[in-house]
Design a protein around this nucleic acid. Structure first.
Lengths: 351, 351
DNA sequence: CATCGACCTCGAATCGATTCGAGGGCTGCG
DNA sequence: CGCAGCCCTCGAATCGATTCGAGGTCGATG
């Protein structure tokens, strides 16, 4: 009599003296079931300790799992360290709120182990691709084959995939123009990675041409719109650490030192400033630093001059686009605008 | 001939001229399949654009979904704002790495909408309960009924649920003793919420006795071990905002002003310091502030005196406990030790 | 009193893949 | 040439719930 395994709907139905189908109706509430029957079923369920329908079976039958995947380009731990990502996640949950869907964190870093839940085998109803992922192309292909509706934040995903983006090129150009107006002519860049390998080092034409990272390329183009000859370093990620390394490389030689550095993220900018501090270079006295994102950087003493992007709004728009897709509509792409915030890390060059 | 719906394994099998079972073997790799057959199947799959087995069907059949739930006590957005939570999540992914499981973010805030994926209906193989959740009891009951293995970080979950914790009481006592040794006698407290309603306001015996939040109670007890008469304010959450409000309340009256405040989290401590700044009270000159957590607080100019807890290690231990549970073992509870870090927010009282 | 209709309840098919035991064909040896 | 044995493939059952159409029962009305 005592079932050792967990009870199923059939067990409950049997105990209540009704058929499985009726029990199902009683639970889901859809369909006409008499009050008495419903009570019987619920009572039987309570007696057996039935915890409700198995979500696995439900999702097979219904064809929906109620889970939305969030694909991060990095290891989860790395994404958590990036305030921009967190803000976007925050926005995504807001945008998805009406669905009541769970958020499954996925990463895009190649094939995982055999039984791992990766982008190619996650029980998700839709997916939000977050971040300027160099591997985006491959991810999109997998999702297309699986028929999973997707939304991309930053990064062109091709036909039918709504894209939530910002004016990377325009914004950077505005920032660069501001530097030029201040009088800067010798400007160096610290960019986000261009390829899937996250190659770190000098910014070379090879890397630029082989770029698979739209965001990095766009921001680069914006800077080049104003400073066509500008070159610099490619960071391996958006982090203070990487910015520090790039900053050291750019500032090491006192005879070839730029008067300003355009970093493609605030964290990189913070790293550059840290490098300047190490080398005794005054910011903004001897070096102006421009960031991108508009986050508050932990431990940074400066009010960074930066391009403030609406990260939360981006996430929210992505979440809403998912809702729309699952409702069968075809949401449009959205492009947000960034705003130049002038802080205390930029000034006229000392010459 | 052209299937409009996505192909299934049977379609592939039919196209390859084999049975569905053989096709399954060919895909999963388990079981003896001749090379030629395997090739045929893979070729057919490629032609049909078959994207691999449906994870929903797999998880039904296998009884495992490859997903581990992380239950946060707050809205996801709130958790993302708490650096301690992020560090723990980080640790959890590390600990779970060997499983290759996906991480599903869940919240514990009452019943969600009808079709929402909540703790009572998420397709997860195991769950990590994160944070000192006042609703923990109810969550545990649901999970027990569902037969989902669980691990709790901070918060007693009862029989058979491994608990990952720190020495909340001991640590707070050590911090309090340090304050007493400095000469403080008039100490006020700012605590985390005690109940599910997150009641905010004066710290009353009623609230203390009705506590469902073990962490808050333990830290309170540690403080009382040294300052039995200490009282103070209960915050509605761990945030700078809440700390600010509590700090204002505690410091408003110049005639009854404590010489030190023990906050139950660094964010609360940062808020208290902000309140002191507003009121022109020097820290640590006129007011000493003790925190808990050991995170770097964004924008805080001080080196906070605090009890540093190993957040990442806690998460990692929880992840490893989940792996162990799923392997059929019975992992033991773990209790980590916090370390008092003396920064520049504590000093001897001015008189 | 008989028949029609409304309201419930039930059976059976289905979602897509996995798995185990059985059977069939081929090879090699006696 | 015949038979044993092995390797591969197949059928069928199963995971647990949902859903649609059919059938049954009871009440109401002519």
């Amino acid at each position: 009599m005592t079932e050792s395994a967990r009870p199923t709907l059939s067990d409950v139905a049997a105990r209540a003296g009704v058929s499985a189908s009726t029990a199902s109706l009683a639970f889901s509430g859809s369909g006409p079931v008499s009050g008495a029957t419903k009570q019987k079923v619920l009572a039987a369920a309570a007696e057996l300790g039935y915890a409700g329908p198995d979500p696995r079976a439900q999702s097979l039958r219904r064809g929906r799992s109620g889970i939305v995947g969030v694909v991060l380009e990095e290891r989860v731990r790395a994404a958590f360290l990036d305030p921009v990502k967190i803000q976007m996640l925050d926005g995504i949950t807001e945008g998805l709120a009406s669905l009541g869907a769970g958020l499954l964190l996925l990463t895009d870093t190649g094939e995982a182990g055999g039984n791992a839940v990766g982008i190619e085998s996650a029980p998700v109803d839709a997916v939000v691709l977050v971040g300027c992922s160099p591997r985006l192309g491959q991810s999109v292909e997998v999702l297309r084959r699986r028929g999973i509706p997707s939304v991309a934040i930053e990064g062109d995903a091709g036909d039918g995939i709504p894209k939530i983006s910002i004016d990377n090129r325009e914004a950077t150009r505005r920032g660069a123009e501001y530097l030029r107006e201040l009088g800067h002519a010798d400007v160096a860049l610290v960019t986000l990675p261009f390829d899937a390998a996250r190659t770190r080092g000098p910014l070379t034409p090879d890397l630029e041409l082989g770029s698979t990272a739209e965001t990095a390329s766009e921001r680069l183009a914006g800077a080049r719109d104003v400073f066509p000859e500008a070159t610099g370093r490619v960071a391996g990620a958006s982090s203070i650490e990487e910015g520090l390394e790039a900053g050291r490389a750019l500032l090491a030689d006192p005879s070839h030192r730029p008067t300003a550095i355009i970093a493609q993220s605030d964290l990189l900018a913070a790293g550059v400033i840290q490098a300047a501090d190490e080398l005794g270079i005054a910011v903004p006295g001897e070096l102006s630093v421009l960031g991108f994102d508009g986050i508050r950087v932990d431990g940074l003493q400066h009010d960074l001059t930066t391009l403030v992007q609406p990260s939360v709004a981006k996430g929210r728009a992505a979440g809403e686009a998912v809702v729309s897709l699952l409702a069968g509509d075809s949401p449009r792409s959205v492009c947000f605008t960034s705003v130049l915030h002038v802080g205390d890390t930029t000034a006229a060059p000392s010459r």
